[in-house]
Design a protein around this nucleic acid. Structure first.
Lengths: 141, 141
DNA sequence: TTTAATTCATACTGAAACAGTAGGATTTCT
DNA sequence: AGAAATCCTACTGTTTCAGTATGAATTAAA
């Protein structure tokens, strides 16, 4: 059970934007260097973040990205879902022949995984971007 | 972010054992049919469950597996960790060149993922095998 | 004592997903 | 004009997943 890099990188990049939010548009090159993430990969991630109105872009030289909302209003859950990081620990789809055959009756553990999903999602719902930044600043001192 | 089948199947199979715990050793063939899981795959899973003393085996004809402890004492977390289903949403190993370079300083989001792991683990810690079986019986009625 | 049912052990494999790379087009500041 | 940036989309090597396959060892029952 692992988080995919897209979700992780997205949160890292958004936290970076939050930290430098008063310095105008931040270029992906900067984030790439600071967070040690491939530039081209970041580009893909930011297209999705933009589609979800989490950031807005400024094109051309001296351009970059800016947060759409203040960090205390941005939920981690929103960032992660924006980049297609699904929190679906169980996929009981029609195709799946094995394990859970949800046609007849739910598998014994069906409720368990549903609850797990809720548990994880509620974790991400409670945490805002600002919470990460605060922590980071405290560590710096 | 998905659970792997091994973890899911292990919990399903253990729940099956719990339900039929008074009928002597349960063969993997039975579990395979009831839970719709490949027999050969179940064999691999049960070798690990046995190593962790979650079940004991009875070899030969009329053999099978039996729970080592009563279902109310078996934590879901134990089952899942037994089959190598790691709850490590972030792997900050030395090999990883990208993202988190924990040589110099922890990445901004390091604490977040640590907390997430704890959150998920505590979920599995609280739930016992018996809890699944009870639910299942209620649904049956 | 043979047969069938079972666990035990390990090697192999097709398919899918992941984590990027690559290449170019477009926009805008200087 | 040129450089710095976003934008867009296709491609790809590697790894992991989810099993299969095969055979050996063990034991109950006929």
């Amino acid at each position: 059970m692992k988080l995919k890099t897209k979700g992780r990188y997205a949160v890292m990049a958004m936290a970076d934007l939050a930290i430098f939010k008063d310095e105008g548009p931040i270029s992906l090159t900067d984030i790439s260097l600071r967070q040690n993430i491939s530039l081209a990969y970041l580009e893909q991630i930011f297209i999705k973040l933009k589609q979800e109105n989490l950031v807005k872009s400024v094109r051309g030289a001296k351009g970059g990205y800016v947060l759409e909302s203040p960090p205390e209003e941005i939920k981690i859950s929103h960032i992660i879902s924006a980049v297609d990081e699904e929190i679906k620990t169980l996929n009981c789809k029609k195709e799946s022949k094995r394990g859970c055959n949800n046609k007849s009756s739910k598998c014994i553990t069906h409720n368990l995984w549903d609850q797990l999903d809720q548990h994880i999602n509620s974790f991400f719902e409670k945490i805002k971007l600002q919470d990460l930044v605060k922590k980071n600043q405290m560590i710096d001192k």
